[in-house]
Nucleic acid binder design. Structure first.
Lengths: 335, 335
DNA sequence: CTGAAAGCGCTTACAG
DNA sequence: CTGAAAGCGCTTACAG
């Protein structure tokens, strides 16, 4: 990694300014010159130094994505979308995992600031004021993905959780269910502040099915274990339950496991609806009926918004809400 | 992002050299000076520019990981390990997805070269000569993870696939199985060139169980669908099969799904052993008995090797082989 | 304990 | 069509 533009210039018998012009496809040299330069670059295996270049034009061609310890599968999809959009324009993407820790988040932010990344996707964690203030003081473009933000002025890419929950619950009711439990796994709070629970509640009300807060169980995370434990509780408390709506696919898989352990057949005796439509949703037996969140597209969109802004193609302030759909597979039947 | 070391120096009433010393914790300034500088940094919200710094000392504090379109879960674990090791030393990690495409791989390599990353983890794809040549001409430290390399001189982190397959197959034989099928999903080739198949074969021979090449099915990928399709073929061809060893957990889940569709009960009528020990292995019904590959640790180790080399703590040439273990869960019973 | 100056590898007016 | 020179924001001998 030792040869630089000077050596290329010497070898080609031109000035470094000319080499630079050729590399960047600018105007102002003869065809012969171009050929000489190109050959020298080839011969020396020269790669322009992005650091030097970045220092000049204050651009790094780099995006960062920040996320907590989320489900691998969830993260994976979003990351793919971000990477795809970035790669299309020859941007690199730096990944930062925070484990939900404040300290780690700030440390990452500090590092990204020093590295002068061109944009940040903040994914599926709560964007507290300290973070957004930090980022905005640095004037780094920011998009929040699928998380909650304390600041409505920050552009955001997400699904309408409330509507999606409404859809899932209504679907179950449409199949004839009235004894429907719900499992949720995010930050604790009053039930009427959790959008997914609100959507569930609304659907029940809309169809005149009584709402029982005890049929909603919230736990720390969205994982398999939480789903399994939650379902066990629900099933013990309400033996006549015929359906459970889980707020993530992993939780839904946990429900299936809990049912299996109790000898309860899915879907004959218990219907299950998940949320996310991750790869596992197709792998369970029976395959999972679930709410599809277009995670790849959302990641792609978030990165595109950043890129559009960086290249001055578009301003960055509007949020975008992606439509959800319900994917019918095999985990729901009539009660 | 407009304030630089000069402004800090002016504000603190010192030279930029002194500011630099304070920032980098070098010697040579009074306590009073230090305080003045620190205050100026605070007040101005100054963040040193890593590009300028990198340009000087030829270091970017950045690692890259390159992988193809692999299973999300597989990738996720490795990535976590790499990220954890990197973050510990304040390194960032750039992710590059190649989709297994040669063009994309070269484009990524080109970008990484220009960005002057300090090291590269090449994960779970075949490192063809063109790639390794490219990287070595650039003198970027390289570690191959869990992939095959055409060049034995390149440091590598992996599991002993052959032994692991031997373990899995022996385990099944130990449980009393003799009719054992195998599913594999990597690059095509003669059976005796695929290490996992060789391990399977060895175990059979070792216990005097006849080997039938028709009981081994290889397909393009390691995914759920390939497992399901492969298992269907196997089950149709050999109705008296009592066990299947799948070369990935996703394939094993596919086996369970295929069995379920045919009304074959797992493990009562068919035992299944997987490979990887991904999160899904715990989520299936029944939970999957599988070979545990310490993917997180492997990712961590690969990054650590790079870091040790970068910091001159250790040379980079030895490969490391991680031990595998078999995790007994519920998908195997006696025939 | 501190500062002036060179230099890392580029790009970009400016002058010709 | 081409080159000399300034400058991006730092670090690091060197001199005091």
């Amino acid at each position: 990694m030792d040869i630089n533009i000077k050596e290329v210039a010497r070898k080609a018998g031109v000035s470094i300014a000319t080499v630079s012009r050729v590399i960047n496809g600018k105007e102002g040299y003869s065809d012969l010159t171009r050929q000489k330069v190109m050959r020298a670059i080839q011969d020396l295996n020269y790669k322009p130094n992005a650091l030097a270049r970045g220092l000049l034009n204050q651009k790094t061609q780099t995006l960062a994505i920040i996320f907590p310890q989320v489900s691998d599968m969830f993260t994976g999809r979003v990351l793919r979308g971000v990477e795809a959009a970035a790669h299309q324009e020859n941007f690199s993407v730096i990944v930062c995992k925070t484990d939900g820790s404040h300290v780690r988040t700030m440390r990452h932010l500090e590092l990204l600031a020093e590295k002068r990344v061109d944009g940040i996707v903040f994914a599926s964690e709560i964007l507290v004021k300290e973070y957004s203030d930090f980022i905005q003081r640095l004037k780094i473009p920011l998009v929040v993905l699928s998380g909650e933000s304390d600041d409505p002025g920050i552009p955001c890419v997400r699904c309408d959780d409330q509507k999606a929950s409404f859809t899932a619950t209504s679907y179950l009711i449409g199949q004839g269910h009235t004894q429907i439990g719900m499992l949720y796994g995010g930050r604790k709070g009053k039930l009427d502040e959790i959008t997914r629970v609100v959507g569930y509640h609304e659907a029940l009300s809309h169809f005149h099915v009584p709402f029982d807060p005890h049929k909603v169980i919230t736990s720390e995370g969205f994982g398999f274990q939480e789903g399994k434990t939650g379902a066990a509780q629900l099933l013990d408390r309400f033996p006549n339950l015929t359906a459970i709506f889980a707020a993530s696919d992993e939780m839904a898989v946990g429900v299936i496991a809990a049912a299996y352990e109790r000898g309860i057949r899915v879907p004959e005796q218990l219907s299950v609806v998940g949320y996310d439509d991750l790869p596992i949703a197709e792998m369970t037996t029976p395959p999972l009926t679930t709410i599809h969140q277009p995670l790849y597209k959302m990641g792609f969109k978030a990165a595109s918004m950043l890129l559009d802004h960086i290249h001055g193609r578009e301003d960055l302030f509007s949020s975008v809400v992606f439509p959800h759909t319900i994917i019918e597979r095999g985990s729901v039947s009539r009660p």
